[in-house]
Write a protein that binds this DNA or RNA. Structure first.
Lengths: 192, 192
DNA sequence: GTCTATAACGAGATAGAC
DNA sequence: GTCTATCTCGTTATAGAC
């Protein structure tokens, strides 16, 4: 049986709630009870869909990473390196708007406490982001649309670092404009 | 009675362990039992020194912030804006060397789950850092030692954001050289 | 200042009925 | 697929002896 596209399965609704809770309170900051209460289910029902919290957490990262990579593919279609970087920053801003941290940024902070497979998935998320950014940077430099010193890999890392850090700090004040200011300064220096 | 400078009080040793655990696993990622075991004390002894985890957490941030501000005062003595920025980044690198996150960076991630007074103290830490950096930047621009567009406040925020984010990500790979690369690119663009 | 003992609660998890 | 009931363990916290 295939679900109609507009009806979320229970598993999806669990992931939606768990994702928001993880982004706002951390993986170690929410419980099955929190998710169950919000969905008006019992904890046991959650265990049916995700046997343990480790499985839920892994599904969380996998879905988030997949969704993110899909968004990056869509950005590729812009075919304008400078606009692509701006669109990339906008992905972060969208998350920040309702006071969430990047899921993997949050999990990066908690990294040492995570199940091994979640740790690996978080690292892979950042590697994928850096790789994608590096191709945008290389492409932009080849086209003359972007200017930067050093390797595209190092520049990509600086962008990821800057955006993740800007989210982390801007969230304290619930102030997306702070994020935008940092992000703009970071990216404007690259666009010719 | 005053303690000799080289003998740490029990309260200090508790803070030392709790600080390291918070920086590596998060405030929600360690327990009184963890601290007690490492110090070969009981949990009850910890409650004597810090009635509850909220008080311990607040003392943690207060001590860290005070120590950090003292370090910033020492850096002021360098009287060379570019060297001062490098020394500032070095503070972060020192923390990262044994796989710790900045205490307040970690607490920023967990911010929404913290006791109210801890939340305020974390925000104050970042405000103080930004203020200090802004004075270094203003001073450096006046002397002609630093160049940057826009306000010193906005530039200060970009520096804090970049360094915190670089720590967050570099810690994943246990790779301080990544931090150094990001930090150098961030700061070199300011030094004339 | 530190201990033993215990209370009170929350978390993750499982068995088995429906 | 969801429920009730239960288990086990970890966590915070307190009382009272030493």
């Amino acid at each position: 049986m295939v679900q109609p596209a507009h009806v979320a399965t229970t598993a999806d609704r669990i992931l939606d709630v768990a994702e928001r809770l993880t982004q706002s309170q951390g993986y170690n900051g929410f419980s099955y009870a929190d998710v169950a209460a919000e969905l008006e289910l019992t904890r046991a029902a959650l265990h049916y869909h995700f046997p343990g919290k480790a499985e839920l957490g892994l599904a969380l990262v996998a879905r988030y990473a997949q969704r993110f990579m899909t968004a990056l593919s869509a950005i590729d279609a812009l075919d304008d390196p400078c606009a692509e970087l701006a669109a990339y920053a906008q992905l972060y801003l969208d998350v920040l708007e309702d006071r969430r941290m990047c899921l993997c940024g949050m999990l990066a902070a908690e990294h040492q406490t995570l199940p091994a497979r979640m740790q690996d998935a978080v690292i892979a998320f950042f590697d994928d982001n850096e790789r994608w950014l590096a191709t945008v940077l290389d492409d932009g430099r080849a086209k003359g649309a972007l200017t930067f010193a050093g390797t595209s890999e190092a520049t990509a890392r600086m962008i990821v670092d800057g955006l993740e850090g800007a989210m982390l700090v801007a969230r304290l004040h619930h102030d997306p404009s702070r994020f935008r200011a940092s992000a703009d300064r970071l990216l404007d220096s690259l666009c010719t």
